[in-house]
Amino acid sequence: MTNWGYTLMTEQSGPKELVRYAVAAEEKGFDFEVSSDHYSPWLTSQGHAPYAWSVLGAVAQATERVELMTYVTCPTVRYHPAVVAQKSATLQLLADGRFTLGLGAGENLNEHVVGEGWPAVDARHDMLEEAIEIIRALHTGDLVTFDGEYFRVDSARVWDLPEQGVPIGVAVSGEKSVEAFAPLGDHLIQVEPDKDVVDQWNGVHEGPSRVIGQLPICWGPDKDAAIAQAHDQFRWFAGGWSVNADLPTPAGFSAASQFVRPEDVAESIACGPDLDELAESARPFLEAGFTDIAFVQVGDEGQDRFLAEAAGPLLEKVRAL
């Protein structure tokens, strides 16, 4: 049975709007909700970047049933892992056990703002390994002192801990990161429907594991208008994650995507009113073995209408797949 989720896209909506959408998404029957954790939007036209943890705290109180998740938090530069350990434990308490901490190696766009520079990819992965070790240690409730290659922790303890702990999902991209993080994480986060990565993870990871992905769509009553909105808001994705991880500013993403055409976006993102087409765009994730798929409805404009008119019927169609 696949779980179907809704994305709280902090890059395209303000904090109060996100809480409202979260409530509506729960009412429409989504199983879980994921939140991005950004300091900047990808593109200036998106125009938002509220603090994800404040939003999720409010969502935890405004909802009752849906599972919640960060997709994803980087616990290495902008945040010290000891702080991530504390705030994820607090959020789990507020959510009554509905929260999963999604972690990844991050993007320059969000991490350079604290003036600590942007490490090379191998160092970022080593830092993430060390950060997860610290978070796991602090979630035991023990007094932790840690002296690693990248992080120090001095006599720290998380005082308010949920009994059920905080499950950790880790975003990986290939064989090397699977080998490193499958023993450390509870669940796999994967941005592409890559069956090889899923199979590798399942071969290394001990015990049951969820495979969690994210799928952008742009529903709207007019197909051309939906394509235009997807191009305006989401053309940044075209460079792929090897590029997206290193660009530092929305201006950089605008420059890098200036030659991406609307028809290029339409080839990658299902757009328009045809719910069967939108539902079918999830099939590669199902065939790759994903257990959890979160939709991103592109753009803040029309989000209320998507939730009111399209979300329920779309869920019926994807569940029939």
Rank of each mutant, 00 (worst) to 15 (best):
M1P: 15
T2H: 09
N3Q: 14
W4K: 12
W4H: 10
P15V: 03
K16P: 10
R20E: 15
A22F: 00
A22Y: 04
A22T: 03
V23R: 06
V23T: 08
E26L: 04
E27R: 06
K28W: 09
G29F: 00
D31T: 02
D31H: 09
S36E: 07
D37M: 03
Y39D: 07
P41R: 00
P41G: 00
L43M: 05
T44D: 09
H48Y: 07
Y51L: 10
Y51T: 05
A52N: 05
S54E: 15
L56R: 03
L56V: 11
G57K: 02
A62P: 13
T63N: 09
T70A: 08
T70S: 12
T70W: 01
Y71L: 15
Y71F: 11
Y79A: 09
Y79F: 11
V83N: 08
A85Y: 06
A85C: 11
K87D: 10
A89Q: 08
T90C: 12
L94T: 06
G97C: 11
G97L: 05
G102W: 01
G106S: 07
L109H: 00
E111Y: 04
H112P: 12
G115P: 08
E116P: 02
W118V: 12
V121D: 14
A123V: 13
D126L: 14
D126A: 11
D126N: 11
E129M: 02
A131I: 05
E133P: 04
H139M: 09
V144P: 03
T145G: 12
G148K: 03
G148V: 09
E149S: 11
Y150W: 11
S155I: 06
A156N: 10
R157D: 04
W159V: 14
E163N: 11
V166Q: 02
A171P: 06
S173N: 14
E175A: 13
V178N: 05
E179G: 10
E179D: 15
F181K: 04
P183K: 12
Q190E: 15
Q190C: 15
D194F: 04
D194L: 05
D194T: 03
D196Q: 11
D199L: 13
E206C: 11
G207T: 04
V211M: 12
V211F: 08
I212A: 04
I212V: 15
G213V: 09
G213C: 11
Q214T: 13
C218D: 12
P221V: 13
K223T: 14
D224K: 12
A226G: 12
A226F: 01
I227Q: 03
A230N: 06
D232K: 05
S242Y: 08
T249Y: 00
P250L: 02
P250N: 01
A256G: 04
A256F: 00
A256W: 00
S257Y: 00
P262I: 03
V265R: 00
A266R: 02
I269Y: 01
P273S: 00
L275C: 10
L278G: 12
L278R: 07
P284C: 02
G289S: 14
F290K: 01
T291A: 03
D292V: 05
V298H: 00
E309K: 01
G312P: 06
K317T: 07
V318D: 07
R319L: 07
